[in-house]
Each structure stands twice: as C-alpha cells, then as structure tokens.
C-alpha cells in the first residue's frame, strides 16, 4: 500500500491511468455499451479541442507563466470566423479566412507575450484583463446575433473524416505528437523547461527569456485558433458563449496532468490523460444512470480532481525536500 501510494505520488500518469480505468469499469459495469467504439469515438471527439488547447497551455505553464485568456480568444476568433464566413454577412472564401484565423491567433498570442515580456505585466494579470476584454470585443463583433450558416469547408474541421477517422481526432493527434516532440526532442523544448525551472540560471547559460516566452505565448495563441476551427466546425453554431470557461478547464487539465504551476516540470502524456479524464466524467455520469441531477456534478468532480492534484503535488514536493535534506 505504501509502495503504491509513493508510486502514485511519483508517477502522475500511473494514477491517471488507474482513475480512467476505474471510471471505465464502473460505467461499463452499469452499461456495457460504454465500451462501444461509438462511445469512445464520442469521448475522443469531445476531448479533441480541449486537447489542442492543452497543448498550447502546457509550454506556457512550463516556463512559469499562465494564459487564462484562451477561452475568450476562442470566442473572439469564433465570432470573427462567423462574421467573415457567414453567407448572410461578409461571405468570404473559407480558405483564406481559415488562414487569417490561424494567423490572428498567433498574433494575439504574441501580443500577450509582448505584454508579459516587454511591458513586464505578470501574465496572470495581463491575461485576466484579456479574458474580459476579448470577450467584450467578441460580443461587439457578434452584435447579439447567432451565426449558424457556416460553409462546408469550415464544418469539415468538426465533421469530416480522414481515412475513416474524424478530422477532430486526427488534428488533435497531430498537435499532441508535434507538441510532445517539441517538448522532449528539441533544444527549444529543453530550454523552456530550463527557463521555468530556474530563470536566473537560464540567464547564466545565455538563454533568451523574451524569445522563449514570446514563442510559448505565440504557440498558445496559434493552437487556440486551431481549437477554434475544430470547435466551430463541430458545433456549427456560434453565439456569445463559445469557449466560455475553457481557460479554467485547460489549466485544470494541465495541473491534474502533473504540470507544476511554478514551472519547470510536467509531461505532455500526463496532460493528455488528464484531458481524457476530465472530458469522460460527464459521459461516465450519464452511463452510471444516477438520474438527471447527476450530470450536474461534472464541475464539482473536476474541481475535486484539481484539489487532489495540488495536494498530491504538495506531498511529493515535501517528500523530495526531505530526501534532499538527508542525502
């Protein structure tokens, strides 16, 4: 038991796999159709946009910063996408619009990064301001309308398939693979971890703090745009609430996945598992057939996991501090 505890403390991924397994067993025990291909396909499709956002958020947190404006940026980009594509409004060609949205996301991210690195605004405050401001701009852009007439080229992001696999799952898979490779296999990724682990030491080895931070915020903004296309394609409708609350869900996934909020530590596979866990909670609650009221517990359960993750982090830190002191 002791050994199991310490393994769970050390290896966040093992704990997450165990939890996902436990939930699956419980839901499947109640209703075997939980194990059907269709159900897992739904879970993955629902998880895909969150997965992409988490891939953007993780490098930001690894460098010791945070971006809580991603939900509002999703909303704003979705609104712009709607206004530009909708036949009732501007009716532009969807291909350049898609490129424009992707570029817009990256530029918005770079702007946030500039606020943090050059204007030296703490990222939590800068993005708190943007959280409200971007949502406000979005509401202005939408003028209170709901936009639903998206061309097929935009809907393809959410409903199309590639070799029988949903585009959503393919894109999320590609982004996860790319981010994972960047984080582990490239000098850039290592430097991000170094910067978050000890900024002073990073300066001593000649790393450029502003370049690295500009990159992570730009990357986060770009992936927010990708997630926006996925989300809009999937929903087919944009209103003022698109993306609301996503910033907290994504930060929750990162923390539950074992990314240290102080920077320097975290693994993408933990984050991927955490996204799956967070997204499947709702489905599991439905399959457990606890009644209509039960699904309302989703947020509370997600919140419980973040508290659990933080407590576990704290315990692990104390243990390693003790070990360091006596060795």
């Amino acid at each position: 038991m002791r050994r199991l505890m310490s393994a769970l403390l050390r290896e966040r991924e093992a704990g997450l796999v165990a939890l996902i397994g436990l939930l699956t067993l419980a839901a499947a025990g109640r209703d075997p159709s939980f194990l059907s291909v269709q159900n897992w396909r739904d879970i993955l499709v629902n998880a895909a946009p969150v997965m992409v956002l988490a891939c953007g958020m993780m490098p930001v947190i690894v460098t010791g910063e945070i971006d809580i404006s991603v939900g509002s940026l999703t909303g704003l980009l979705a609104g712009l996408l709607g206004v530009m594509c909708s036949t009732a409004q501007w009716g532009w060609n969807p291909v350049p619009v898609t490129l424009l949205i992707l570029a817009g996301g990256a530029v918005a991210g770079l702007g946030t990064g500039a606020l943090v690195t050059f204007a030296r605004v703490p990222s939590i405050l800068a993005t708190l301001g943007l959280l409200t401001a971007l949502r406000g701009v979005m509401i202005w852009v939408m003028r209170g309308n709901q936009i639903g007439d998206f061309p097929p080229a935009i809907r393809w992001w959410g409903t199309g398939t590639i070799l029988g696999l949903p585009v959503l799952v393919c894109v999320a898979g590609g982004v996860v693979a790319g981010t994972g490779w960047m984080a582990v296999q490239t000098p850039l990724g290592r430097r991000l971890f170094a910067l978050g682990s000890n900024p002073d030491a990073a300066r001593l080895v000649g790393l450029s703090e502003w370049r690295l931070k500009l990159f992570v915020f730009g990357w986060c903004g770009f992936l927010t745009a990708v997630a926006t296309l996925m989300l809009v394609g999937k929903l087919g409708v944009v209103d003022a609430s698109v993306g609301r609350g996503y910033e907290l869900l994504v930060v929750t996934c990162a923390v539950v996945g074992g990314v240290s909020i102080r920077g320097g530590r975290g693994r993408l596979r933990g984050v991927v598992l955490a996204v799956l866990l967070m997204v499947m909670i709702k489905t599991v609650l439905v399959f457990l057939k606890l009644g209509d009221e039960a699904t309302k517990w989703e947020r509370a359960i997600q919140g419980g996991f973040i508290l659990l993750a933080v407590v576990l982090d704290h315990l692990a830190e104390r243990r390693s501090a003790d070990a360091g002191g006596h060795s």
Binding site: R190, R191, S197, N198, D200, A201, G264
Partner: peptide, 21 residues
C-alpha cells in the same frame, strides 16, 4: 557558478547541455 545556478527539475544531461545542445 555556485550550486544555486542549477536547474533542479532537469536531469544531469540537460543541465550540462542546455543552451548548447
């Protein structure tokens, strides 16, 4: 540098090569 200039979350390999991988 003195030991405070290490990266505690990185392993020895990365500590030695970060910045000139």
């Amino acid at each position: 540098h003195q030991e405070s200039a290490a990266f505690p979350d990185l392993d020895a390999v990365d500590n030695i090569y970060v910045g000139r991988e």
